[in-house]
Design a protein around this nucleic acid. Structure first.
Lengths: 108, 108
DNA sequence: TAAAATAATATCGACCATCGATATAACAGA
DNA sequence: TCTGTTATATCGATGGTCGATATTATTTTA
């Protein structure tokens, strides 16, 4: 199983955010904070290099757009990105399930 | 929230193993594999340095014991270790819950 | 109005967890 | 005898994340 899953959950979370809606970088940080009820606070020093690398590997595409009259760099998930999202989702479910089992924990 | 939670889940899993029973290193790898239904395969290059560092920081204590007539280095969880286990367990639950929520996933 | 805070993008060195490789020794089974 | 497994150990490399720093534009506050 993928070792970088744990650490690399940020990739999965970003792909999930972009699944239904294009967003620009800063917006993703806020959206992630909101959806996680303040548990996640992705750092800009993590986000931007990650976005660039995801684009380079073809999971995302960027384009210039506008928000409130201002230029923004929007990101869009690609077909490969959607495929990778599903893959990582499955891996996460397996991993988290195993942790829960070993730890004898339950969610909600 | 602790950034090393994700990566550092190995510490939590080891503490959990030792919660009810003392074990030696190699045994922990096997037990972890078993309890996780082959999802976890902790590497020896990860385990031994981690055990040493956990002992150094007072979460574990080691002693020489025997298994099938052979000398083994057993590890025992300390009071601090149990406290740390509970702390990490809580953090994990919070983190995993947030991931599940963002990902719209469910675990049995 | 000037200053401070926030939004937005970007980079870089440092840290830390993990891995693969390598080493050694004892013992089991083929 | 040789191979495989158990068991402990170390070390260099990798890779994800962070904090610091930088820059520009806009908004809020004093």
């Amino acid at each position: 199983m993928d070792k970088s899953l744990l650490s690399g959950s940020n990739t999965m979370l970003l792909l999930q955010l972009l699944k239904d809606q294009d967003m620009y970088g800063y917006q993703m940080i806020e959206e992630l904070r909101k959806r996680s009820q303040d548990v996640f606070e992705m750092k800009v020093g993590t986000l931007y290099p990650l976005l660039h690398s995801l684009e380079k590997s073809g999971l995302l595409q960027s384009y210039e757009g506008e928000a409130a009259g201002k230029k923004r760099i929007y990101y869009q998930i690609t077909k490969d990105g959607r495929q990778e999202l599903e893959r990582k989702k499955g891996e996460w479910a397996e991993y988290a399930g195993a942790v829960m089992h070993v730890m004898q924990l339950q969610i909600d």
